[in-house]
C-alpha cells in the first residue's frame, strides 16, 4: 500500500471538477493517484449537480481505505471525510453514523473518528437542527464516543480530547435531552481543564449561532449549548482544580 506520492502532472494542476470526477471513477487509477485526487478534491469547488457523484465516490473511498494501516491512506481518508460531510445535504447526515460504528471489522483509527466527530459538529453548526429533527443513529454513536473517550485517563492524550470535545458539542446540538447526562459525566472528571474548555466552546458557539442566524433558526441549538455551558460552569471549582499548576 505504501507507494511514493506521485506528483500531479502539469495537466492536473489545471484539473477541473469534472475531470477530477472522471479520474476518480476510472478503474485504472492507482492507489497513490486516487489518494492524491481525493486530497485535491477537498480544496475544490464542485457544481451542485456534481455533489451527489462526488460524495458517492468519496464514500466508497472512505469505506475502502478507513481500516488501512498506511498513514498516507489515512491522510486521504481524512480529506475525504471532511469533503464528504461538508458537501452532503443535511438529510444524508445519519448515514455518517455507520462510519463511526465501533462494531466494524476493525476499529477505525482515532484520527478517522476525530475527523468524523468534527465534521458532524461543523455540519450541525451550518445547519442547526430544530427540536423536531431526530438523528437516532448518530445520537447513539456520539453518546458512545463521549462515554468512552471523555475520561481522565484519555483526555490529555493526543487526539482523544479533540475527539471527545467535538462529540460532546455535536451531541448537544443533536439532542437537548442529552445535556444533563453529558454534564454529569464531565462534572465527574478530575480534568477541570476539559470541562472549562467545553463550557467556553459551548458558550462561544452559542453566541456565534445567534449572530449568524438572526431568523431564529438556531435558537434551539444555541439554547442547548448555553444550557450545557451553564451546567458545566456551575460545577467549576467543585470536583477539583484539575491540573492548574502554574509554571
Amino acid at each position: 500500500m505504501s507507494e511514493p506520492v506521485i506528483l500531479v502532472s502539469a495537466q492536473e494542476t489545471e484539473l477541473t471538477s469534472r475531470g477530477l470526477l472522471q479520474r476518480l471513477q476510472d478503474a485504472t487509477t492507482g492507489d497513490a493517484r486516487r489518494r492524491r485526487l481525493v486530497i485535491e478534491a477537498e480544496a475544490m469547488t464542485f457544481e451542485p449537480g456534481q455533489v451527489g457523484e462526488l460524495n458517492s465516490l468519496l464514500r466508497t473511498f472512505i469505506e475502502e481505505y478507513r481500516d488501512s494501516d498506511d498513514p498516507q491512506d489515512i491522510v486521504a481518508v481524512g480529506s475525504a471525510i471532511r469533503k464528504y460531510v461538508a458537501a452532503m445535504p443535511l438529510a444524508d447526515l445519519p448515514g455518517v453514523a455507520a462510519l463511526l460504528d465501533a462494531g466494524h471489522k476493525a476499529q477505525a483509527p482515532l484520527s478517522v473518528e476525530l475527523e468524523i466527530c468534527k465534521m458532524v459538529f461543523r455540519k450541525l453548526l451550518a445547519n442547526p437542527p430544530g427540536d423536531k429533527q431526530e438523528f437516532p443513529e448518530l445520537d447513539w454513536c456520539l453518546t458512545d464516543v463521549v462515554r468512552v473517550y471523555a475520561n481522565d485517563r484519555l483526555l490529555s492524550r493526543e487526539k482523544y480530547g479533540a475527539t471527545a470535545l467535538n462529540a460532546v458539542l455535536a451531541l448537544v446540538l443533536l439532542n437537548g435531552d442529552r445535556i444533563a447526562s453529558v454534564a454529569q459525566q464531565l462534572r465527574a472528571l478530575k480534568a477541570g481543564w476539559f470541562r472549562e474548555l467545553a463550557a467556553r466552546q459551548a458558550r462561544n458557539t452559542s453566541r456565534d449561532l445567534m449572530q449568524r442566524f438572526q431568523d431564529g433558526k438556531a435558537d434551539f441549538s444555541a439554547r442547548n449549548l448555553e444550557r450545557l455551558a451553564a451546567e458545566l460552569e456551575q460545577s467549576s471549582g467543585g470536583a477539583d482544580a484539575g491540573t492548574t499548576s502554574p509554571r
Binding site: 477537498e42 480544496a43 451542485p48 471532511r82 469533503k83 460531510v85 458537501a87 445535504p89 453548526l125 451550518a126
Partner: peptide, 10 residues
C-alpha cells in the same frame, strides 16, 4: 473554506 451550505471544510 466552506461548502455551499456554510459547512467549514478546513
Amino acid at each position: 473554506f466552506q461548502e455551499l451550505d456554510g459547512t467549514v471544510t478546513y
